[in-house]
Computed example of a mutant assay.
Amino acid sequence: MSNTAINTAQNVNIEYVYAGLGKRILAFIIDALVLFAYIIILTFTVYRAISVLDGDNDIGAYELSMIPIFIYSLIMHIIFNGRTVGKFIMGIKVVKEDGSPARWSDFIVRWIVRLVDLWLFMFTVGTVSILLTDKQQRLGDMMAKTIVINTRKSVNISHTILQEVDEGYQPIFLNAHLLSDIQANEIKEIYRLAGQSRDYNVLHQLRLKIESILQIKSDLKDGQFVRTVLKDYFHLTSK
């Protein structure tokens, strides 16, 4: 699998896996099923009602009902920050090449170029492009400078850290509460990813960053230090 390094707000590089062709196809199929369900619902409700009440305006009503299908991908990506129903189920997401959130203008570019990637040449251009490019990008991704990454978590951080904190726990770093919620959540995510990939360099960088933020020093090993800070933070802020 190909990975991409993304620099977080804590100036720590972490890696995400590019979403492969298989997952992207499955996401597309799921989205197609969503739209098919939409058409079925319209057929047995709106279309039937229109044909009974005003058969002369059937064509105009049908054309209007097709607009949500036409703009589905664009609107979903904009509203749900790089995801459609299919992408959400498959655990993949569209982001910028540097890992930052994609903008609405990026989604518009990707949506317009779908005409070439998917429809004009029967998916050939998009498929070949994903298979042959280093970042597994279709033409629309290359033009918008976006990538599709896997986001699904295989480990729940609360199971590995926070469940260990009981009522009688005595915090070691009493200023851990100075972390913001955003910082604590990012530390948890980086810790999870570093452990998952066994990237001890990232773990050490994370430790140095925490020490800098909280102005503390410790003899604890990197992993134990991060876990302790998180437990202290959880214990102190929960009160």
Rank of each mutant, 00 (worst) to 15 (best):
S105M: 02
I187R: 02
A176M: 00
L120S: 05
V165L: 10
W111M: 07
H177L: 12
F70Y: 13
I75L: 06
I67C: 13
R192C: 11
K87P: 00
V85Q: 03
L64G: 15
I161E: 06
V52L: 10
L118H: 10
K153N: 08
E63H: 11
M143Q: 00
N156P: 12
W111C: 01
K87S: 08
V85D: 11
V113M: 05
N81G: 03
N185S: 09
R114K: 10
V95L: 07
G168V: 05
I59W: 14
G91Q: 01
D56V: 11
L174I: 08
F88Y: 14
I161N: 15
S73I: 02
S51P: 11
L120D: 04
I79C: 03
L131P: 08
T146V: 12
I92F: 02
K188Q: 14
Y62Q: 14
F88D: 04
K188A: 13
V155Y: 13
P171S: 13
E189S: 13
L64W: 07
D56M: 14
E189L: 09
D56H: 14
G86V: 08
M122E: 14
H77S: 13
I161Q: 15
G60Q: 09
L115N: 02
G82P: 02
R138A: 10
T133P: 02
Q163D: 15
I59L: 15
N156T: 13
D56Q: 15
I79Q: 00
F80H: 05
V113F: 03
I147Y: 07
D134Q: 12
K145M: 06
D58N: 15
V165Y: 05
L139D: 03
V116K: 06
G91S: 07
G55C: 02
K135D: 06
Q136W: 06
S105C: 06
D181F: 02
Q183T: 09
I75H: 01
G140W: 00
I50Y: 13
I50S: 01
L64R: 07
E186A: 08
D106R: 05
S100G: 14
T133H: 09
R192H: 10
S158M: 13
V113C: 08
Q183D: 09
E167V: 11
V155R: 04
A61M: 04
E167C: 04
